[in-house]
């Protein structure tokens, strides 16, 4: 123990800061010096811990009041605003989505297989468009077709294919719809298909039955096919105006056909290969005594006088 009791009370001076730590170190033992340091620190902590908390309360009040009025309400308002904002955003996105139709478009000569939300399958032929609304699909299986497609519908609610030439509705079946320009052909492969044409005429199709509409003339057809020929790379026609066959050729091979002096209304029965243009042209035009010239993507036709 260092009993350093001179006239000067050096420990009092040191606590007041009038005596430095180094000066104290010279006056007391190292053990005592460390004790004093620890004590001084303890006093400071105790002072901090025991001092009146007025400043703290003041800080708390300031933080509380900096958030407008009663905080509970402000928080709810914030929540409400947040909810409103997210609702708006959600509605915006939702309406955007609901307005956004799902559209499939195939290029000329291409086919696309589409799986619908209910498991139904659609094979879209070349140069065709299939459209449906994702939102209303849940309530109503309805789609819009321009062109040709083969449908394999899973059982369920009414399934409707609309086209500008008429609508086709079924419950679960396989059928083919071809609606191009004013030509409309529906063929049923399985199940039962109801067709309502543009002229509000109703046709119930059973397997192997079909209906064609061309220029307002409706015809029921029968065929023993099990799948549309275009799926097998073949396109067939029965008493079909040449105009439609030519349009189909153009679609299939992405070519332009100049009809020349050929009569568009000539009826054609037969088919063509959808993979080989030369073969297709030969199979369509040879039986009809039509000559054709191929120049790049342009084909020129000429009717040969059959009276020869």
């Amino acid at each position: 123990m260092n009993k350093n009791t001179n006239n000067t009370y050096f420990l009092a001076d040191w606590l007041e800061g009038k005596l430095s730590d180094d000066q104290l170190k010279k006056l007391v033992s190292e053990k005592d010096f460390n004790e004093y340091l620890k004590l001084r620190k303890s006093f400071d902590i105790l002072s901090e811990l025991n001092k009146p908390m007025d400043d703290t309360l003041y800080s708390i009040k300031k933080k509380i009041s900096s958030k407008p009025k009663s905080k509970v309400i402000s928080l709810y308002t914030k929540f409400a605003l947040g909810i409103a904002a997210s609702l708006l955003l959600f509605l915006g996105l939702y309406s955007k989505f609901s307005n956004q139709d799902i559209i499939y478009k195939t290029a000329t000569g291409k086919q696309q297989t589409i799986a619908l939300l209910d498991g139904s399958q659609v094979i879209l032929n070349g140069n065709s468009t299939l459209k449906y609304n994702k939102k209303s699909w849940k309530n109503k299986r309805e789609l819009f077709l321009d062109g040709e497609a083969y449908f394999k519908v899973t059982k369920g609610q009414k399934f409707t294919v609309n086209s500008k030439n008429g609508s086709v509705s079924v419950l679960g079946t396989q059928f083919n719809v071809n609606s191009r320009d004013s030509y409309f052909k529906v063929f049923c492969f399985e199940g039962k298909v109801k067709v309502i044409t543009k002229n509000k005429k109703e046709h119930i199709l059973t397997p192997s039955k079909g209906v064609t509409v061309y220029d307002g003339i409706e015809k029921e057809i029968t065929n023993q096919k099990t799948k549309p020929n275009w799926l097998k790379g073949e396109k067939t026609f029965e008493n079909t105006p040449l105009k439609i066959v030519i349009a189909e050729l153009e679609n299939q091979f992405n070519v332009k056909i100049d009809k020349g002096n050929v009569n568009y209304t000539t009826l054609f029965t037969g088919g063509f290969d959808t993979k080989n243009l030369n073969l297709a042209l030969a199979s369509v035009f040879k039986p009809l005594y039509i000559k054709y010239q191929i120049k790049d993507k342009n084909i020129k036709l000429r009717q040969i006088d059959t009276n020869d």
């Binding site: 009370y9 050096f10 009092a12 606590l15 004590l39």
Partner: peptide
């Protein structure tokens, strides 16, 4: 005051 402070610190230690 200084004396009491000085003595108090020693006493505490």
């Amino acid at each position: 005051v200084e004396k009491r402070m000085h003595d108090a610190l020693i006493r505490i230690k």
